[in-house]
């Protein structure tokens, strides 16, 4: 499953390293994280990780494989 997460603001490389399984692309006023998500447990784990680091997920969607 490929997922894309849009997070408010630009996320630094340091914090992005907390998501080694995702790629990071900076967009205007947002950061895109995308990559393969193994299963639902992984997905919720990722969301928790965003939350714990104080990052706000604005949008999340599944990409076509």
């Amino acid at each position: 499953m490929q997922y894309e997460f849009r997070v408010t603001g630009h996320v630094s490389v340091v914090l992005a390293e907390a998501f080694p399984e995702l790629q990071r692309v900076l967009a205007p006023r947002q950061t895109l994280f995308f990559g393969a998500v193994t299963d639902e447990a992984h997905l919720y784990g990722l969301l928790n990780r965003f939350r714990d680091l104080g990052l706000r997920v604005e949008e999340m969607r599944r990409l076509a494989d």
Binding site: V7, G9, V11, S12, V14, L15, T31, G54, L55
Partner: peptide, 12 residues
């Protein structure tokens, strides 16, 4: 003016 994520910017 910065476009960084709030927590990220401020903590750094």
């Amino acid at each position: 003016a910065s476009k960084d994520a709030v927590a990220d910017y401020l903590l750094a």
